[in-house]
Amino acid sequence: MLNFVIFGPPGAGKGTQSEKLIEKYQLIHISTGDLFRAHIKNQSPLGQRVSELIAEGQLVPDEITIAMLEEEVDKNPQAKGFIFDGFPRTVPQAQALDAFLESKNGNIAGVIALDVDQDELTKRIAQRQLETGRVDDQADKLQKRIAEYFDKTIHVLPYYEAQGKLSKVNGIGKIDDIFAELSAVIDKY
């Protein structure tokens, strides 16, 4: 199984690039953000709790996120692999993902970090908010999410770097040029 984590702050292009990678490599995309939004849309008890947390700009607790993620992997036993988007956000989540995949005789082949500076992120998300109206893209919540990434989430990268699994790709430029760089990384596996 070919499993990757696509990493980067909100607005780095993870979703856009994941769509292209899914098509090229026939991988299953698991976005924790999409999972959360689906639960919120369905007004499940979990969705209501997730909605409260996201509205406050907080991260969803590990146990909720991990359970949702494991459920999605288990729904796709014939998958060629997965792209994990928005997860893991902490070293304990990374360790839990590794343990879960090992229990399925799998692992994370690589982690691709999209590097995008804060000015570009702000510009992209402002545009996305105009186009989609996502509540988590509103200016006050956005700054919390970006700060959360740079204060906490980015510290997951050394965990994967120590395993020799980290690749960094410049996330600023033309979508197709960035995709070509991402594909070159994946093709090494």
Rank of each mutant, 00 (worst) to 15 (best):
A94G: 02
G164M: 12
H29A: 05
L69N: 03
T153G: 03
I28R: 10
S183D: 15
K24D: 08
R145H: 00
I30W: 07
N3Q: 02
L157I: 03
M1E: 10
A113D: 15
F36G: 00
G11P: 03
D34N: 12
K123F: 10
V73R: 06
A139K: 13
T153M: 02
I178W: 09
I22P: 04
K20F: 13
G33A: 07
L166V: 01
Y159A: 00
E56K: 14
F100C: 00
L157C: 00
E181V: 04
E181D: 14
G133F: 09
I154V: 11
E70G: 02
E72G: 00
L21H: 00
E131R: 06
N42F: 11
D151L: 10
L97H: 03
H29W: 07
I22Y: 11
G86M: 10
D115K: 07
G11C: 10
V91W: 10
K168Q: 10
A139H: 11
Q26E: 14
E63A: 11
D117Y: 06
R89P: 02
S183Q: 13
D98K: 02
F87D: 06
M68K: 01
K123Q: 13
Q93M: 01
Q26L: 12
L53M: 13
G86N: 08
E102V: 08
T132Y: 13
I28V: 15
K188P: 00
Q138S: 12
A94H: 04
I146H: 06
Q43D: 15
E102I: 05
G13S: 07
M68G: 04
N170C: 11
E52D: 14
E52F: 11
M68N: 04
F4E: 05
V60A: 04
I146S: 05
A113P: 02
P88F: 06
G15A: 12
V135N: 12
L101C: 04
